[in-house]
């Protein structure tokens, strides 16, 4: 039925009123991403911690553990070159789980019901926040880098090193967003928030986050060796420790693709089961 006056829910705008066409994946995702970006400005208290935490971490770790560069074989003479990429990945991860927090808020307030009832592809409910998350990560990494450079960090492989760092950051945020959204859908309330942070924090720290693998021993070494995030951190640090090589890149990319696939599948499955 084409709406002409009088029509159900009265309108003079003409479009098929008996059955809405439904939003496309691209348009719906863009609309939801825009909503996520607005919250950066309108709810800065939710965004600033993800920005401040890596800055504080980079400065504090590199200052406290500056002597780590004296260890024979340590790959750089600047401690901040070692810790800055870690801080960027941490900030990216927390930006990712931030999407989970936002979704928990929507679930608890009931706004998410309105989004679910819309005839747009369900995937847009994941892709939209993810796009917003990626933009937030770009802001976070760029800001942390500016602070890092002012504290003495130096690139060793120019633009390619920056690309590697941004790819790693975006990858970590994708993994974290999938995980955060999945937990939000499963729990539906703030119980999910603690799990999101705890698991991501542990996953990123049980790696070569603080020290290179070759000086680690015991169970921590074994876990860090097999932890896929070790490869992601290796990818992120290349441009600060030497040259970017395929050998130090492919493992990180594989980890990002694999873990992203798993966590985004977890999110999608949780979304599909919300009505069960």
């Amino acid at each position: 039925m084409t709406a002409t006056s009088p029509s159900p829910a009265g309108s003079t705008v003409s479009f098929d009123s008996a059955s809405a066409p439904g939003g496309t994946l691209v348009r719906s995702s863009r609309g939801l991403a825009l909503r996520g970006l607005r919250s950066i400005v309108r709810l800065p208290s939710a965004f600033l911690p993800a920005m401040m935490m890596p800055i504080v971490q980079a400065i504090a770790f590199s200052g406290t553990f500056f002597a780590i560069t004296k260890i024979p074989g340590f790959p750089t003479d600047r401690s901040i070159n070692w810790y800055l990429p870690l801080a960027c990945c941490m900030g990216s991860g927390f930006s990712g789980v931030g999407m989970g927090f936002s979704t928990v808020r929507d679930l608890e307030s009931g706004f998410f019901d309105r989004l679910r009832m819309a005839p747009s592809p369900p995937l847009s409910l994941i892709l939209g926040p993810l796009l917003a998350c990626w933009l937030r990560v770009m802001i976070v990494i760029s800001t942390v880098l500016v602070v890092g450079f002012s504290f003495g960090a130096r690139l060793t492989d120019g633009a390619l090193g920056l690309v590697a760092l941004y790819v790693a950051g975006l990858g970590v945020s994708t993994i974290a967003a999938g995980w955060g959204l999945g937990l939000a859908y499963v729990f539906g309330d703030m119980r999910a928030a603690a799990l999101m942070q705890l698991t991501l924090f542990n996953a990123l720290f049980l790696t070569n986050a603080q020290t290179p693998l070759f000086i680690m021993t015991g169970w921590l070494h074994e876990i860090a060796r097999v932890n896929p995030f070790t490869n992601v951190l290796r990818l992120s640090r290349q441009g600060f420790l030497g040259e970017v090589t395929w050998g130090d890149t492919w493992g990180g990319l594989a980890a990002i693709v694999g873990l992203s696939a798993v966590t985004l599948w977890f999110a999608r499955r949780g979304l599909d089961r919300l009505g069960d």
Binding site: A20, P21, G22, G23, T24, R27, S28, R30, G31, L32, L34, R35, R38, S39, R42, L43, D106, S109, G110, F111, D113, R114, L115, A118, P119, S120, S124
Partner: peptide
């Protein structure tokens, strides 16, 4: 249940996009 951070206009526009 409406997002308190959005304006009425923004919410209607988002809803319109989601309904195609």
């Amino acid at each position: 249940a409406i997002d308190p951070l959005m304006t009425g206009n923004e919410l209607l526009e988002l809803q319109a996009v989601l309904y195609g």
